[in-house]
Nucleic acid binder design. Structure first.
Lengths: 200, 200
DNA sequence: CATTAAGTGTCTAAACGGTAGACACCCTGA
DNA sequence: TCAGGGTGTCTACCGTTTAGACACTTAATG
């Protein structure tokens, strides 16, 4: 009764997820271009036919993977931030919490940013997605309401955040998540007065 | 051609794994006794019939989960310890490295030790398994070869190690794995001269 | 006390996801 | 020039999972 035709079954979703995880692993091991469909199904322990039931080819898998993760990143912002028993709403707190949490939860994917021969588009679309999020979902106030070109300001701060993320990932998340978030907040306080989630 | 009858297929293994993970999650949320088979299949997104194809009941699932994890812990000791590019053999290094690594990799499971209404047997069988490992797989030398009752000594040190593990888990693995291992080594040096893996 | 609601364990037919294996095709390197 | 290996497609089949029913137990409720 629940099988809406536009919706993949859990089983199919799981299979796709397994294939994606295998793909991520293989990109890290041998580089994007060297990975074959055969490699992927071997790694994930599926039949090659099964791959083609889900994706046209390696490129479609790569696109799907990239876009689903970036979409997830965008969607993560509005959700309440959960830590331990406490639930923080983004209204009251620093909104990029959720971005940080999302990235850490999906670190197997985001670690791909460390590699040269990696997912096509990742190095360009990750930063631009962060900028998009800053533009669409946040309202900033500068310290003392100093007037600025807000487009520039958001671009500047979003790339700053991106830089911190890259650093964090490159150092294998050595700084614990909590601490990293605090660092981000401290840095932001040098030039941002407030930071509010406005929904979409 | 590959279906040895004594070996579960990858698909079945995955299904069992999904059910186990759902079970772990639910025990944390509502306690072992409150978890129903229905809860498990809902959480894991399977049909209730499917559960009974794999397990007789909740108790068998619990037993399977507990024993497979403790077995994995025992088996982990002999394997080479991998960190970054380097591979350390247990001969040359501190053998409980592998225990620590295994526990951390399966932290979703081992976190169950924090709960009261948790997997039956976990609170007793985890420490006794560690003692068993110490007894069967390690040779100790005391500092200056001070003679001791080695059974007592192993029991003492294994429970000491267990205590550290509990602490580490209870603090949500706040200490990074590397650092924790170093702490374990430092503590051990106060009374253990050497520590060698002897296989089984 | 009777009645509902919810879970249990078992069974069946049917649906569906995944498999094996073959096909023609395209590269690439020896 | 040819062999080896990957690609994309197809088909018949297999085995896991599903839906849904069954009789049964247990706990809560009016």
């Amino acid at each position: 009764m629940n099988n809406e035709q536009y919706e993949l079954s859990q089983r199919q979703n799981r299979t796709r997820e397994h294939l994606k995880q295998a793909f991520i692993q293989l990109i890290k091991e041998k580089g994007y271009h060297a990975v074959t469909v055969k490699d992927i199904v071997d790694q994930a322990a599926y039949n090659r036919s099964t791959f083609y039931l889900h994706f046209q080819d390696k490129i479609e898998l790569a696109d799907d993977l990239l876009h689903s993760m970036l979409q997830g990143l965008e969607d993560s912002v509005g959700k309440p931030y959960v830590h331990g028993q406490k639930v923080y709403t983004t209204k009251l707190n620093f909104p990029s919490f959720n971005l940080v949490t999302y990235i850490y939860e999906h670190r197997h994917f985001f670690e791909l940013i460390k590699y040269e021969d990696t997912l096509p588009g990742l190095h360009t679309q990750l930063p631009s997605t962060i900028t998009k999020i800053y533009n669409e979902q946040f309202i900033f106030k500068t310290i003392n309401d100093i007037p600025v070109n807000m487009d520039y300001f958001k671009r500047y701060t979003s790339y700053g955040f991106y830089g911190l993320i890259i650093h964090w990932i490159s150092n294998d998340f050595h700084t614990p998540q909590e601490e990293f978030i605090q660092d981000v907040i401290d840095l932001s306080k040098t030039h941002i007065y407030s930071f509010e989630y406005v929904g979409r």
